[in-house]
């Protein structure tokens, strides 16, 4: 099982790297065939990735939900799947140019912290782990996509710039803006559930539903940033480039919550 997991993980990595290459060739050549190939390769990566995750779950006898490595690979899976869905459904192959570098970068990071599945420490033995992590994947996956599309927006919507090069491949800003909003609203809903499931679990495990633990607090900060975005979008003037910048910043906060906090700030979370 371990070798199946490992081999398919490598295959997935290769497929994602190739899909990135295909999308970059789409950027240079503007050939639809390259973009098409990019999506096919992303799909292949997802399949290999799924096999690898399944093998790991079988070997561990549990869902792959128990440490940062497992969480990051699940998040990559969500981002790649989201890229495929959004790219195809909204006919936006340019999404691949912006999202696949994120997929490959996170995959490289995952490789560097890869470890064999270990048994669950007592604090993680709870049904809430499943809900907590599942909502996190959906929330953070969505925020990652909104980040990629936010970048697209920033590239596209520059007053006075010519519609050439990369800019020519990106759909009109109005569509992007609504898409970012929709994705963030989706992510925000799951971020809310993430925080609530975490709080209920903390009440069972630590005896306090909220203790201002750094990880917890940063999840709240993420949530506040996106609450700011949503209210600024519907009722304020935080649309357009300002909104896109918020989408970018929001995801930086997400990544800090995930990766930065554990290096910089000590806390209660047993996720390592």
């Amino acid at each position: 099982m371990q070798t199946i997991e490992s081999n398919f993980f490598t295959l997935a990595f290769i497929a994602y790297v190739l899909s990135l290459a295909a999308f970059f060739s789409f950027f240079w050549t503007r050939s639809d065939r390259s973009a098409h190939l990019g999506f096919v390769l992303t799909g292949a990566g997802l399949l290999f990735h799924l096999v690898s995750l399944t093998a790991r779950s079988i070997a561990a006898g549990r869902w792959p939900f128990a440490n940062l490595y497992e969480f990051i690979t699940l998040m990559i899976f969500a981002i790649a799947a989201g890229t495929l869905i959004i790219g195809l459904r909204y006919r936006m192959p340019a999404t691949g140019i912006f999202a696949t570098p994120l997929v490959v970068g996170l995959m490289a990071y995952a490789f560097s912290i890869k470890k064999a599945p270990e048994a669950l420490v007592p604090a993680l033995q709870s049904y809430w782990l499943q809900f907590h992590v599942a909502t996190a994947i959906l929330a953070y996956g969505a925020f990652a996509l909104s980040f990629a599309i936010g970048l697209m927006y920033l590239v596209k919507d520059r007053p006075g710039a010519a519609e050439t090069g990369l800019r020519g491949l990106i759909p009109e800003p109005g569509r992007l803006e609504r898409l970012i909003y929709g994705i963030i609203a989706f992510g925000f809903a799951f971020q809310t559930l993430l925080i609530i499931t975490g709080a209920v679990w903390a009440e069972e495990a630590w005896g306090t539903w909220w203790s201002w633990d750094p990880m917890e607090t940063w999840a709240l900060i993420t949530w506040l940033v996106y609450a700011f975005y949503l209210h600024g979008w519907t009722r304020g003037s935080w649309r357009g480039r300002r909104g896109a910048w918020l989408a970018v910043i929001g995801f930086v906060v997400v990544m800090f919550t995930l990766i930065g906090v554990k290096f910089v700030l000590p806390g209660l979370h047993s996720y390592t």
Binding site: W212, P214, T217, W218, L224, V225, F228, L265
Partner: peptide, 10 residues
């Protein structure tokens, strides 16, 4: 609240 919370973790 976001900025204050961030300071509170540092």
């Amino acid at each position: 609240l976001s900025i204050a919370s961030a300071i509170g973790t540092v």
